[in-house]
Simulated scan of single mutants.
Amino acid sequence: MDRSKTTENFLVENDGPITTITFNRPERRNCLDEDVILDFERLLHAVRDDRECRVLIVTGKGTAFCAGADKAMFEAPAGATIDPAERRRRMGEFGKRWPRLIGRAFDVLAHLDQITIGAINGYAVGGGWSFALAFDFAIAVEGAEFWVPEVDLDVPYRGAPASVLAARLGPWRAKEAILMCRHYRAEELLAMGALNRVVKPNALMPSARELAKTIAAKSRDALAASKRDINAVFFGNRLF
């Protein structure tokens, strides 16, 4: 891996065995389109193949971790209108390809040998919450909000992220989250055991880095093997 590489959509920082990837679209609340997801997946593949990296931290720049799908993909530009039939067509195409795009990146992230830490600095919506579910450890700032709006957009929320959400929240709360598109605050998820820690905003990255340094001091092979056995309970077979 080029350990100094950044891209149009992400910042990459390396500190010895710790790599930090930062969503870098703050003006769009770090929302996702196809190019952003593919860019993220490429970076994750590079991390996977980097023998120097033992711990990956993922965070977002600005006030959101990742605000989900970029509505520009299926909405008209500002000041313009879009025919209802065309909007339905775009939404239909979105519903077909979106779960697989998210699922593929989720799968790579969830199955990295490196230990992963999500430093969730704000909104984690749709695909953003999906990625947060794939981390080995998740630390969020006070007041961060999590929800999946897919069903309200006539798009199914499915695949590995939905299964893991059900495992983390239990079936009844998962149905509230997915079918009712219910919003959860970080403090609620912490009480449910669906986050490791909730901290004040200025403590987020110091907490994530402190945890990363503790993990990086341990045996890479022992960490990876132990992680695989734990993941087998929650993730089962690779789905994508």
Rank of each mutant, 00 (worst) to 15 (best):
N30R: 13
T7C: 10
V36G: 00
V164M: 11
R25F: 09
R228L: 11
H183L: 08
M91G: 01
V151H: 03
R54A: 07
I230P: 07
R238T: 13
G79D: 01
P26G: 08
M192R: 01
G62E: 06
I18G: 10
A124L: 03
A140V: 04
D107S: 12
F10G: 14
A174N: 04
A64P: 03
C31P: 04
A124Q: 00
A46R: 14
L239E: 14
L169I: 07
G128Y: 10
G122I: 01
E150F: 14
N231Y: 13
P161S: 04
I139S: 13
E52G: 09
V155Y: 02
D221P: 05
N237I: 08
I57Y: 10
R48T: 00
F135V: 11
K71E: 08
A194W: 00
D154Y: 12
Y123F: 13
A191R: 09
R28N: 15
I37N: 09
P171K: 14
L56I: 08
L101G: 00
I102K: 03
G60L: 03
R42S: 00
F146C: 05
C181I: 00
P99M: 09
P171C: 12
T214Q: 13
L239P: 04
G170R: 04
G128N: 14
E145H: 09
V199A: 04
A140E: 04
L153P: 01
P156N: 05
L189S: 06
L112V: 13
A224N: 07
D83E: 04
L43V: 06
A162F: 01
L169D: 09
F10S: 14
G128P: 12
M205P: 05
A78P: 10
D83A: 04
A208E: 06
V12W: 07
G122A: 05
W172H: 12
I102V: 11
I215E: 02
L195N: 03
I18M: 10
T116V: 07
R104K: 02
E8S: 11
R25N: 15
P201I: 00
S207C: 05
P26C: 05
V58K: 00
G159H: 06
A67P: 03
L109W: 00
I115C: 13
F65C: 10
R51K: 10
G60Q: 02
I178E: 11
I230F: 15
S130N: 15
N30D: 14
I115K: 13
A80D: 07
G143W: 07
F234H: 05
E34F: 09
G126A: 14
E52F: 01
F23M: 03
A208G: 08
C53D: 03
A225Y: 05
G92L: 08
K218F: 06
I82Q: 11
A140M: 05
E13I: 12
V125H: 02
A132W: 10
D33F: 04
E142L: 03
E187M: 00
V164I: 14
I230A: 15
T7F: 09
E188S: 08
A174Y: 01
K200Q: 10
T7D: 13
A232H: 14
D49C: 02
G79F: 01
L32P: 03
